[in-house]
């Protein structure tokens, strides 16, 4: 009979419609903004700069190496290096960015800047409700807006932040161990040098048989 296909189709839609009153799975609409979908951990939208501790200036990890500026495909990052240096998390004095702007009307959240940063200083944020009323200046994020603390990073990307902290701690430990080994080696070299320049004591080699004299020690 002609029309059976259409009737079968209508049966499908009726089943779904009536079923949505009883079966939670058939009711798929989320009433945004009253209900929100939880964002997965890996979700990414626009980068931000991390600082350790409480002071966004002193704890900023970025050393203005400009690698992210170079690798950014749409060239939306603008960095000006500072003239002076400040100590980083390991105590070594490093440059820092005087100006760090990201034009978020150009940024396409490809996270290549995150991949190439050697200092774990720039990571992806998750904020997407960012509408502004003006087109140009309001969509240029400056350093103050972009700097967020490491605790914030732990809140939004817990697994990733834990891995990054572990990497940094390992790197710090390796640097510490190297420094200690270098210090020990330097101390030993200094001690050996001091021993070599001390005049050998005039002693009777025969008075203590068997004991080697300092002069014969090398």
């Amino acid at each position: 009979m002609i029309g059976t296909g259409i009737l079968k189709g209508m049966a499908v839609t009726a089943r779904n419609f009536v079923g949505s009153y009883f079966d939670k799975e058939r009711l798929i609409t989320i009433q945004y903004p009253e209900e929100r979908n939880p964002l997965p951990e890996n979700y990414r939208n626009f980068p931000f700069l991390i600082y350790d501790g409480d002071d966004p200036h002193a704890g900023l990890r970025c050393v203005a190496c400009k690698i992210c500026e170079k690798e950014c495909p749409p060239q939306c990052i603008y960095i000006v290096k500072s003239d002076d240096k400040k100590p980083d998390y390991m105590g070594k004095p490093q440059f820092y960015p005087k100006v760090f702007d990201i034009d978020i009307s150009v940024c396409m959240s490809c996270q290549i800047c995150v991949e190439v940063c050697p200092f774990e200083a720039i990571k992806m944020d998750k904020e997407f409700e960012l509408s502004k009323r003006e087109r140009f200046d309001a969509l240029l994020s400056r350093k103050e807006e972009l700097s967020k603390s490491n605790d914030y990073y732990h809140k939004i990307h817990p697994l990733e932040a834990a891995a990054v902290d572990k990497n940094l701690a390992d790197a710090a430990a390796v640097a510490e161990a190297k420094k200690k080994a270098a210090a020990e080696a330097a101390a030993k070299a200094a001690a050996a040098k001091a021993a070599a320049t001390k005049p050998p004591p005039a002693g009777d080699a025969a008075s203590v048989p068997g004991k080697p004299t300092p002069s014969s020690q090398q």
């Binding site: 997965p40 890996n42 490809c110």
Partner: peptide, 19 residues
Amino acid sequence: REKILDLFESLAGSRMMCD
């Protein structure tokens, strides 16, 4: 499609522009 895009989002970080 939404189910599959949710999979992409939890893996790659973005629903459509996965990179």
